[in-house]
Design a protein around this nucleic acid. Structure first.
Length: 577
RNA sequence: GGCCCCGUAGCUCAGCUGGAUAGAGCAGCUGACUUCUAAUCAGCAGGCCACAGGUUCGAAUCCUGUCGGGGUCACCA
């Protein structure tokens, strides 16, 4: 159940009644009417802005509308009172029984509580990580991996049919460089001194690949021209790199549904087909681009190129799809790749990219808009940098010194759960500070710990009460939960379905992390009250009925925490020792 | 120079697609454990929401401009 959605339905019904009886004029749009929690709990449980947003189109005073609407709302059994306040807000007080009985709902549905169907089974493809297959994943990829994966879980929770997808950039020049680097490691394995020239990948991770190549080819590729071995080694090395990538992702609990190869677009007519589709829409032409605005590059010269008229779909300048020698630019396979996604029948697309790809957003959106005739929305989420610290001191990373921090380093040091949670405590477009020491600290300073500790405390209390089953707790007398702090906690639980929907529709998994922190905070506060006032303890030996109700309540907290952590891909802890 | 992102308490950040008196955590100060985990909690203090205009019943939120920080910028992917 989503109380906010339910009550909004009621508000809309009552507004229709006011139209029907002539109080409100016909033809009003109710799309801006909202039902949300008021900022201040003193104002009530829910508030609607209906009277204010309708005042102008209805040519009425907000208070007049509100006063007409209020008595109708109170007719609903769930609404105890409706008061006009401020400039025309309607503050609603909800029957406490609604919140109390929600516990039964939570215990019955378990972690399914809060699932919605706003996705309506629409197919959505989320492309993320998509790191070049030239080495292991590093911290930057880690953020994209965690963000993308959590976003997928969130969308699934909201009723989408989600595909997790990784685009393997195995068609460009960088995999040739990989092959040459691997070849040197192969020579090294064969007893020769490797020549890791400038521009090749120097990392040690290619040594096992060299060994494996020796295993497979013996000495047969030594002293052979590049043309004899390049294709074979490229394939071999790329597959080895993707094995590493898959292992890295697995260590974070990320499992892709589809690995899509860029190479598969070449020589199969797929690029040609995508460009032909654009051409048929009159969006491909031959011409030369104007020089970039502002400072002119020294070697700039006008060039005839095959261009995509992306400016028809919101881009700032048209983009080349073919180089002057007739070969494709990197943009062409990207167009073909997104064309392929559209042809596979996705209703929505999301690309998760690093912030350094910001300049790429408009052209890709333009391409998808053109290819799908504006029917398939593409959202591009840019993940900002991760800055690494150890105990407050910045961590130096240098690619040249070959000491850049790998995903596997992070996971090895702090574990998957902590890595994931910390990475999700920031909006994707804000830079993230990741402190190795703080991430492992067991204090309120560390939100992962704080949330897990709340869950563990519930487990501990339930254990004290001999672990009653959810089925048994569902029969508790929830009406006994009348303390203000208890009702506040229940209202927080009631926000979960709405919050999950909002997080999903905004493509913002970090909201889950912040909600869990708030929920944990409410719970910790309530538990602590039991120390000050024994009457508020969860387990009261003299009142088994009230104890059961409270145990059911905290069990519901654990269920929602568990559910939220599940979306983030973090395991709930049952004890913290 | 063009485009994109960011600018909110001393620090790190939320702010629910425009709502009521702008919120957390840390740091600071004052308090709270013979009890279900004090690994916690309560309170105090802390603000020109970068700045200036605009849109309207109402702006941290939307628009325009300015300043400051970051990213990116024609045959590299």
């Amino acid at each position: 159940m989503n109380l906010f959605a339910d009550i909004k339905t009621v508000v809309l019904e009552k507004l229709e009644m006011l139209v029907a009886d002539g109080t409100l004029p016909e033809g009003l749009s109710f799309t801006n009417v909202t039902v949300e929690p008021p900022r201040d709990a003193l104002h009530g449980d829910l508030a609607t802005n209906a009277a204010m947003v309708l005042a102008k189109p209805a040519r009425m005073k907000p208070r007049d509308i509100a006063e007409a609407l209020a008595p109708l709302l109170v007719q609903d059994s769930r609404v105890n009172s409706a008061d006009v306040a401020g400039p025309g807000f309607l503050n609603l007080r909800i029957d406490p029984a609604i919140f109390q009985n929600m516990i039964g709902d939570i215990l019955a549905k378990g972690t399914g509580f809060g699932r919605s169907n706003i996705g309506a089974g629409r197919k959505i493809n989320v492309e993320f990580v998509s790191a070049n297959p030239t080495g292991p994943l590093h911290v930057g990829h880690t953020r994209g991996a965690v963000f993308g994966d959590a976003l997928c879980s969130l969308l699934d929770f909201a009723g989408y049919d989600v595909t997790r997808e990784y685009y393997i950039n195995d068609g460009g020049a960088q995999v040739d460089v990989l092959a040459r680097s691997a070849y040197e490691r192969y020579r090294e394995a064969c007893g020769h001194a490797p020549e890791i020239k400038e521009g090749l990948y120097p990392g040690d991770y290619l040594k096992p690949v060299g060994e494996a190549l020796k295993e497979k080819y013996g000495d047969s590729l030594l002293d052979k021209p590049e043309s004899d071995w390049l294709a074979d080694i490229r394939l071999f090395a790329t597959e080895a790199m993707m094995d590493m990538v898959r292992a890295d992702l697995a260590s974070l609990g990320v499992k892709m549904d589809v690995f899509f190869s860029e190479k598969s677009l070449y020589g199969t007519g797929k690029i040609e087909a995508a460009i032909a589709d654009l051409d048929a829409k009159g969006l491909i032409y031959t011409g030369s681009l104007p020089p970039p605005k502002g400072k002119l590059p020294e070697d700039w010269e006008a060039r005839e190129q095959t261009l995509f008229r992306s400016t028809d779909h919101g881009d700032d300048v048209d983009r080349p799809v073919q180089k002057s020698d007739g070969s494709w630019t990197y943009f062409a396979p990207d167009i073909a790749y997104h064309y392929d996604k559209i042809e596979r029948g996705y209703d929505e697309l999301i690309d998760v990219l690093g912030a350094d790809h910001g300049g790429y957003v408009k052209r890709m959106k333009a391409a998808v808009s053109a290819l799908s005739d504006g029917k398939v929305p593409l959202d591009i989420k840019l993940c900002q940098l991760v800055r690494l610290f150890r105990d407050g001191k910045p961590f130096k990373m240098s690619k040249r010194a070959n000491n850049f921090i790998l995903l596997s380093d992070v996971v090895a040091q702090v574990g998957s759960d902590v890595t994931r949670f910390v990475m999700l405590t920031r909006k994707n477009d804000a830079p993230l500070d990741f402190d190795f020491k703080k991430a492992l600290e067991q204090s309120k300073d560390n939100p992962v710990f704080y949330v897990q500790y709340a869950h563990a405390r519930v487990c501990s209390v339930l254990a004290k009460a001999d672990n009653p089953t959810d089925a048994a707790l569902q029969n508790a007398d929830f009406a006994r939960l009348t303390a203000p702090a208890e009702l506040a906690l229940l209202k927080k639980l009631g926000e979960w379905p709405r919050l999950a929907e909002l997080a999903a529709s905004h493509h913002e998994p970090h909201r889950i992390a912040f909600y869990l922190f708030d929920l944990a905070s409410e719970f910790h506060a309530l538990q602590h009250m039991g120390k000050v006032d024994p009457a508020l303890r969860f387990i009261l030996s003299g009142d088994p009925a009230l104890s059961n109700a409270r145990l059911a309540m905290i069990r519901a907290v654990a269920v929602v925490i568990s559910s939220g952590l599940g979306i983030l891909g973090v395991a709930p802890a049952s004890e913290m020792r």
